[in-house]
C-alpha cells in the first residue's frame, strides 16, 4: 500500500491538498446532486395525480334550491354546503357586530356581490374536521341558526361564522364563481 500513496503524499506536502482530495470531493458532490435529483420524483409521486387534479373544480346547478333550503354536495372528496339564505337570515347575519367575533368577517365578505343569499362553504368543521349539522332538512342548526357540529359543539351562525365552541375559524368559503344565475362553479 505504501507504494500507492507515495506519489500523492509528495504533492500533499507542497500544497496541503492532494489531487485525490479534489477528485474525491467532486465525485461525491456529483453523486449527491444526482441522489437529490433522483429523490425528487420519488417523493413527488405522492402528490395528487392528474386524475385527482382533473376533478378539482365542479359545476353545480342551484336552480332548484328554494330560499331557506340548502344542499350538500361533494367537492375534492369533501362535503360542500350550498345554502339559499332567507331575507330574515341575511338581516340576522348583518345585524352582528363583527368586532365581537372570533373570526371577524361580514356576510358580504363571504358571498358574491349581488348574490348575498348564496352562502357556499365547506361542510368541514374548522375544529377537527367533522361534518356540521344544519344543511339537511330537520337537522339541528345550533344556537345561532346556522350550523352545529355535534363532535365538539361548535355553533355557526347564518353566515357560517363561528360563534360558540372550540372551532378556531369560520367555515371555509371555497373559491367559487357564478357562471349564470343558476350554475355555480366551485374551485
Amino acid at each position: 500500500m505504501a507504494t500507492v500513496e507515495t506519489a500523492d503524499t509528495a504533492v500533499a506536502e507542497e500544497s496541503g491538498v492532494r489531487r485525490r482530495d479534489f477528485i474525491n470531493i467532486a465525485a461525491v458532490s456529483f453523486a449527491g446532486a444526482g441522489a437529490v435529483a433522483t429523490v425528487f420524483p420519488l417523493v413527488n409521486q405522492m402528490n395528487p395525480s392528474a386524475d385527482v387534479l382533473a376533478l378539482s373544480s365542479i359545476e353545480v346547478d342551484i336552480s332548484a334550491i328554494e330560499a331557506g333550503q340548502s344542499i350538500k354536495t361533494s367537492w375534492r372528496k369533501q362535503p360542500i354546503f350550498i345554502r339559499n339564505l332567507t331575507a330574515d337570515e341575511i338581516s340576522q347575519a348583518n345585524a352582528v357586530d363583527t368586532a365581537g367575533l372570533r373570526d371577524p368577517e361580514t356576510l358580504a365578505d363571504r358571498t358574491t356581490p349581488g348574490k348575498e343569499n348564496w352562502l357556499i362553504t365547506l361542510g368541514v368543521c374548522t375544529h377537527l374536521g367533522c361534518v356540521p349539522l344544519g344543511a339537511a332538512q330537520g337537522e339541528i342548526k345550533g344556537e345561532f341558526g346556522g350550523y352545529f357540529c355535534p363532535c365538539h359543539g361548535s355553533h355557526y351562525d347564518t353566515a357560517a361564522r363561528i360563534r360558540k365552541g372550540p372551532a378556531p375559524t369560520n367555515l371555509v368559503v371555497p373559491e367559487h364563481e357564478f357562471l349564470s344565475d343558476t350554475v355555480v362553479k366551485i374551485g
Binding site: P41, N44, Q45, A50, D51, V52
Partner: peptide
Amino acid sequence: EHIMRDVNSGWMI
C-alpha cells in the same frame, strides 16, 4: 395505466 398517465413521474418509476 393510471400510473403511466396520471401519477406524477409514474411512467418513469
